[in-house]
Design a protein around this nucleic acid. Sequence first.
DNA 1: ACCTGAACACCGTTCAAGT
DNA 2: ACCTGAACACCGTTCAAGT
Lengths: 219, 219
Amino acid sequence: MAKRSVRLSRDAIIDCATALADAEGLEAVTIRRLAQENGVTPMAMYWHFNDKDSLLDGLAEHLIASVKLPEPGDGMWDEQLRAILVAFLDAIRPHPALAGLALRRILVAEPGLRLAERVLDLLRQAGFGPEQAAEVGTFLMCAVITLVVGDPMAAKAAVGGDAAADMRHKQAMLQALEPGRYPNLIAAAPALVSCRGQDDYFTINIDLLVQGVRGTRRN
Amino acid sequence: MAKRSVRLSRDAIIDCATALADAEGLEAVTIRRLAQENGVTPMAMYWHFNDKDSLLDGLAEHLIASVKLPEPGDGMWDEQLRAILVAFLDAIRPHPALAGLALRRILVAEPGLRLAERVLDLLRQAGFGPEQAAEVGTFLMCAVITLVVGDPMAAKAAVGGDAAADMRHKQAMLQALEPGRYPNLIAAAPALVSCRGQDDYFTINIDLLVQGVRGTRRN
DNA sequence: ACCTGAACACCGTTCAAGT
DNA sequence: ACCTGAACACCGTTCAAGT
């Protein structure tokens, strides 16, 4: 794994870290591991990044920069809002191990600022004041992130082991609950263990968020 | 800090870990630190817990067990659902550093199962089928957790330093953006940096979730 | 400008052993 | 049943030094 393309760069490290997180989870993203992966000494990383936290900042920024923001368009605010949330979702879905990093880092770099500005703009169009737009907009972006962080496929690499066996095990456990006390859990057992990560899970809950915004605004 | 009450117990360790997480953040919760805090060898922890992950399981279960579930009641499903989400929120709000642990652990112990069963029951009453109830219910609980994980007060202890100064700094940064490109961020700057953690933030977004459920159901 | 070497203070965990 | 001691393989990070 210790290959050295010629020179090390911030971007190369970030790409490497992203691939590593996708393949083995965020806890595999380590200063020492990244160094090893690039055929370099751990301390070489400290030339390109101040410390590990700024490496994580870079990962989050790179992730958010991959959002394909739709053009400001002329449709209704709710359809435009949905389109933006879906664009955000689509960008982070391939990287569930990194999505959580964005929770606290949306407003720290330009790509996140652009995303947030667009969300706030649409919420203002929907009739929210500046404060309410801030509160709702912040939550909407966090909620979309949660949609993919809750994805059990994200845990696959983390646990390292057999995800399918784990799902079968959890479902069997739910099915084995006392029918008198947990009728709904038993009825929903198959969906509970496999719903997250399915397209249906994302679309229905994005819909819930947009409908919630519509129901919450003043006018 | 090395006091020893007589004997070590699972519950004592969990209480200690909870206090530690509240005071210094989750990354201060360490096998070695817990041992030191209890005047004991690190390896003593392994008698009470298989490994660190099962310690975290215990912390999450203890947290969820503190939810004061309202009685099944006779009101409308949406009012009951709001009451349950608020009860969940109130329980985890005092422990923002631990809330994230519950994201993947709701269905692993009895308190979480009881909570989930109640949520699913109300969603069925609202007209959702078993699969949709599972998808929406899972998301609702995750979204409530996100409400407190996104709380910047949770980062206060983690960063260790001056949270107020950090907020002033972030707000100044937002105010200094180009007015042409980020008018809404500038207008919402005060709310963006301080909205989370405020009661208003929680109530408006819990409302958004409940309204979203109402708008999403079939009948 | 970019990287190395040695060292420090931390982690979680295992394994054998004590009482 | 409950805890200790020594050891192992990992962390992030600093500081001085090399080219």
